[in-house]
Amino acid sequence: MDQSWMNSISPFVRAARIMKSSSLTGEWMDHDHVFTYIEQGEAEFFLGGVKYEAREGDILLMHPLMSHIIKSTSTVPLIQFIFHFDLFYDEERSLIINTHASKRMRKKVVEREMQLASIVPISHLQIADRIDLKKRFLLLHKEFLDKRPGGSLMMKAICLELLHIFLKNQTDRKDDEGKMTKGWAFIEKAINFIHESYSDAQLNNTSISEYAEVSTNHLSHLFKKQLGISVQKYVTHIRIEQAKKRIIEGKLTLTEIADVVGFSSIHLFSRSFKATVGITPSKFAAMQSALINENR
């Protein structure tokens, strides 16, 4: 794909939302681009008649007028991070709030907005990129809700970063499919142990590598090479994800959550949460409460 056109794009973000649904089946067609990140769950996406199996960590990018049918396939609720955008700013199109493609709007989709029509519309992210994406999306979502002066410029910048994450994970995707990851037996054993032991504040690289029956240095090398993340950062990622689930459940205080997921203090928890998610635990809790009230 000729990428010279990318030097001139100036994205306009029209909408951003977090969508949670226990049972989702439907068909949509929009006049703009739809960027969807699967935060939780699995679903079948039929994009332009082609079926894609999407799971946690996948990005799907639908170009304008691409028919997409979505069907949930997992027992847990499907959570999607979604934003709509145009590749190029147009004053007339910027006034369009509704994203659904009416017959009138279909005539207004110009050729330059179809630059991404030829790409494979799905990318699967490594752990490091998932963490980066979530942090950036939540910042974009906050800017969209706050509607502050200069917010459109911030959203434009974040949109470009998220597009870069999507495109860079397209590289060699087909070549890697169906091949066993080198050293996966050690990685899988370490991951299973982390998921079982993340609540232990004393969990460290040494205990994890001993359980995986591999040297600490080699396990660190495998995580960096195959997952794009350090062992300790993966542990923090799991703890933060578990904390987010408990915050959403709303049954425990933040201090109790910090203890349950393995942080030695509320201060370390707050600092790690903000560094990973981009906002404090209390702000995240407030956003979740607002989202629940909005969907009632």
Results as ranks from 00 to 15, higher is better:
A243Q: 10
K283I: 07
H33K: 00
I18D: 05
T216W: 00
R17A: 09
G49L: 07
D172P: 00
S23A: 12
V277G: 06
K174I: 10
R173D: 13
E294C: 06
E39G: 01
D200C: 06
S74M: 12
S197A: 09
T216Y: 03
H164M: 06
H100M: 03
L140R: 04
A185C: 01
H218N: 13
T171K: 13
H164C: 03
M154S: 07
D176P: 01
L78R: 04
F46C: 10
R17W: 01
L139M: 08
L254A: 12
S207F: 08
L254D: 10
L203C: 05
I247G: 05
Q40V: 00
F46L: 11
N295A: 15
V50S: 15
E241D: 15
I248F: 11
Q226I: 09
S118T: 09
I208L: 09
V13N: 06
F186E: 12
E44G: 01
Q232P: 02
S123D: 06
R296F: 12
S209D: 02
F81H: 12
E56C: 11
E39L: 05
I127Q: 03
N217L: 08
L24W: 06
H218E: 09
T181V: 15
S215Q: 04
I79F: 02
V214N: 04
I122Y: 00
I131H: 01
H267V: 08
I122M: 12
Q126A: 05
R136K: 15
M29A: 06
E294G: 07
D32V: 09
V214W: 08
F45A: 09
H68G: 02
S10T: 11
Q80P: 00
H141V: 02
R14M: 10
K174M: 14
D172L: 14
Q170C: 08
F137A: 05
K251L: 12
K182L: 06
K103Q: 13
L95S: 11
